[in-house]
């Protein structure tokens, strides 16, 4: 690559960074929101809360059955209908991502909590700890160690999935890249650049997951 090959990138850097910013923002909020929602769903299912537990199961299976792009469309058109006013593409996408990721994270959390030995729960019960105390103090810390690598992997997938927001005219990183590619007639340079960025982020995620996996084994 020569310096001129990099021109389309450097010239539109602010625009690309804006796209990257949206992707990172979406990933962060969907991860945090999805993990919190996922935990609630997992607890409802694990404790078999009457009435709610079957709904939670339906929710999880429902969201896992449909493609994310459909969920994005849904919320884009559905939320305004429900609220009677438009909330804008960004908010509808945020809701869609959190709800969608909540379904996936709930399965990770559920498996994680179930992986904590029965004896650990019984010991906590024998000491007089309540269920939620046991989850918070005993089960989650152990489950998170086991699940952290999976949660990071899910986050990397999520980051890639943010590309789908172009369907509601938002500019994530990938969308920004293709806009620049079209405008500057430099598709090769731009798409190689995009691939490298995704690869770098995936590497960071993998390194993080690997470190968490090692940490959970030694401690």
């Amino acid at each position: 690559m020569s310096a001129s090959d990099l021109a389309p990138i450097t010239n539109s850097l602010p625009f690309l960074l804006q796209g990257l910013g949206l992707s990172v923002l979406l990933t962060a909020i969907a991860m945090v929101g999805g993990i919190v929602l996922g935990l609630v769903i997992a607890l409802v299912r694990l404790t078999r809360v009457p009435v709610l537990a079957p709904f939670a199961a339906l929710y999880v299976n429902g969201f896992r059955a449909v493609p994310l792009i459909l969920v994005i469309f849904w919320f884009y058109f559905l939320v305004p209908l429900l609220l009677g006013r438009s909330v804008g593409a960004l908010y509808s996408v945020l809701i869609a991502f959190v709800m969608f990721e909540g379904a996936y994270y709930s399965e990770i959390m559920r498996a994680g909590l179930q992986s904590v030995r029965v004896g650990q729960w019984q010991a906590a019960k024998a000491l007089g700890l309540g269920y939620l105390q046991t989850v918070r103090l005993i089960a989650l810390p152990q489950a998170l160690r086991n699940m952290a690598p999976l949660m990071v992997t899910q986050g990397v997938i999520l980051f890639q999935d943010t590309a789908l927001v172009y369907v509601v005219s938002l500019h994530d990183f990938m969308t920004s890249v293709s806009i620049v590619a079209n405008n500057t007639s430099s598709p090769v340079e731009m798409y190689v650049f995009a691939a490298l960025v995704y690869l770098a982020i995936c590497q960071v995620g993998n390194a993080l997951a690997g470190r968490l996996k090692r940490a959970s084994r030694t401690a």
Partner: peptide
């Protein structure tokens, strides 16, 4: 329950 202590076969200390 908290007034009756229990000791398990496999210790069940919190790792």
């Amino acid at each position: 329950r908290a007034r009756v202590g229990m000791v398990f076969q496999h210790f069940e200390l919190y790792p």
